[in-house]
Structure formats: structure tokens, C-alpha cells
Design a protein around this nucleic acid. Sequence first.
DNA 1: ACCTGAACACCGTTCAAGT
DNA 2: ACCTGAACACCGTTCAAGT
Lengths: 182, 182
Amino acid sequence: MDAAIACFRRRGFHQATMAEICAEAGISAGALYRYFSSKADIIGAIAEDKRGENDEAFKRAADQHGFIEAICLSARGFFDKFADGDGALIADILSEAIRDDAVSASLRCTDQSSVQIFMQAFRHAQTRGEIDATLDPEIATNTLFGALEGIGLRRAFCRETDADEAISQFRALAERYLEPRP
Amino acid sequence: MDAAIACFRRRGFHQATMAEICAEAGISAGALYRYFSSKADIIGAIAEDKRGENDEAFKRAADQHGFIEAICLSARGFFDKFADGDGALIADILSEAIRDDAVSASLRCTDQSSVQIFMQAFRHAQTRGEIDATLDPEIATNTLFGALEGIGLRRAFCRETDADEAISQFRALAERYLEPRP
DNA sequence: ACCTGAACACCGTTCAAGT
DNA sequence: ACCTGAACACCGTTCAAGT
């Protein structure tokens, strides 16, 4: 899987060939298909793996700092990927996940557990009065996830690679969206 | 180009073959390459075309109704595409535009003129007091574009196809983001 | 049981030949 | 000048043969 990440990062999902991944991993084509059922399956597995790492970091941050600080920290990790040139790869993952039900089902499950973790922190922040208590936690979490991803993709499209700018852009949106109403 | 749209919609960008597009359009492979230099070039041309249509609708709406109503109307047109199953196609366009500089350069130019149109309406709304005057028009416009796209993609990923729900989700975000501050 | 890699099926692109 | 479509180069996937 590390070999696949290296190849996808170097050349992109559709440009990288199975032969390259095999060479990088030091195995044959047949062996690769023993571990992954298709090329789309590889990208799905990568996406799930990355998501799991991020959840852990968020949970720690949400305990120590506020909810907004914690999502901005998550955002930093996410925007750094775009700075590394992984923007197109993330778009490819989305495309495969939207089109391919096999990839999607498993990724949606992982995504759902991320949403649960964020929702729990969201509710705590609501009771603390840090964010607006009238917001629906599930809708708001999904809105923030979507906006974060969209801002990152758009910045990659516009060739804007400064991660700090991206974060302050996202932070301004999140703060105004979540701010308690009088 | 209509033939390509039909094929991409039916089977997706990477699944649709040039042979299919040729058959649908009633021309040969050689002739197709007289009009488009590559498969990526076709999707770029489609994206530019769609964007132009939307700009016109937005300009009319911004004059008649407020800025927020106008972007929600744009959002409706956009979310309807996802309901039609074009979510993966939009992700493919983004992926190609992020990776391929030839596709990107021309699409960015079209995008930039959309941004200009939105920014102008944005400034008018600021002077009218409809939205917060302290927001930077360019950053805010890009943030809204990114958030809109991200919410659409995420909903497609989650298999949520209700366009009305999508709009109210986006509207809540936009209203809170743009609301004048005391 | 697990791996190898040649073979297969398929697709984007080109270009010599035709009109 | 413009089009045709066979041919080319290439890639994801499979499976008979090997260990």
C-alpha cells in the first residue's frame, strides 16, 4: 500500500500503472490482486487509512483545545496534503467513491465513524457555549466536512498552495457559521 | 460535444470510450481529434460551457433578488447536476483540471470571469448592507464557491440526493458567513 | 497454498490512404 | 482540405504453470 501511495503521488491515480506499483512493492501482478481486488480498491484502502490517522489527532485536540481549534488542526493536516500535490488524488478518490459502490460502501462506513467523533465534540462545545446550540450537530458536521474539502479542492484548482492562507479562510467560515446567536 | 456529455453521463468520464463518443456523434475517431486534442480536452470544454450558462442566470437573479437569493439559485442549478448523477463527473473534471495544466489554464480563465461577476454583486450587496462589509470580496467569493462544490460532492458521496435539503444546508452556511456584524 | 508473468481484452491516439 | 478506420502502443486483469 505504501508503494501504491508513492506511485499515485508521483503520477496520479489514472496515470500510475499497476506494473509500476508492482515494481515499487517488489511483487508480481498476480500477487497484488491477492491483496486488492482492483485498482479502485487500492485507492479506497488508502483513503480509509488516512482518515483513521486524522480521527486520532482530532480527538486529542478536541479535549485539549476548543472545537474550532480542533477542526482547524484537522484542516491543517488536510490542506498539507494539497500542498504536497495530492489534490488531484483526492478528487480521484471522490470520483471513484461516488461512482463505484464497492469502494463507496466501505469508505462511507469509515467516514461515518469520523462524523460520529466530530459530532460528539460538537455537542460538548454546544453545552460549553462555545458554538451555537441551535445548530443540528449532524448537518453542521457534514457541512463543515464538505466545505473543508471543497475549499481545499478549489485552492488546488486555482494553484494556491499556501496552507496558512487556506486555514485562515476556513477558520473565518467556521467561526461565523458556528458562532452562538444572541 | 453533446454526444460526449451523453456518454459521460451514462458511463462516466473514464468508463466512456472514445469509440462510443464517436458512434454517438456519428463521426470517426480521426474527425473527433480534429475538434478536441484529447479526452481531457473534451471534459474541459464541457465544464467551460456549463459555467457560462450559469453566469447568465446568476447575473439576472442578482439584479432582481438579493445576493444570497442569487447564490442559492446558482446552488440549485449546481445541486440538480448531482441529483442527475453527475457527481462523479464533476469530481473527474476537478481531477483533470488540477492535474492537467492544459485543461486547467483554460478552465481557470472561465472560472476567473465567474468570480468577477460574483464579486461585483458581492460589493453591491455590501454597500446595500445586505452582507458584512468587512469581508474581502475575493476571498469570500472563493470560499463560497469552494464550500458549494464541497457540499455537493460530499452529498453525492453520502448518496444524499435531495436538492432542497442541499440548498437549505448551503443557505444556512452562507447566511451565517455573510451576515453583517454588529 | 501461494506466486509468477505471459497472455488477453480493451482503449486512447495516430497516420497512411482515400475522397 | 477533410475524413476514415486499421494499426499502434499501452494498461488492467486473469490464469495456466511453477514452487
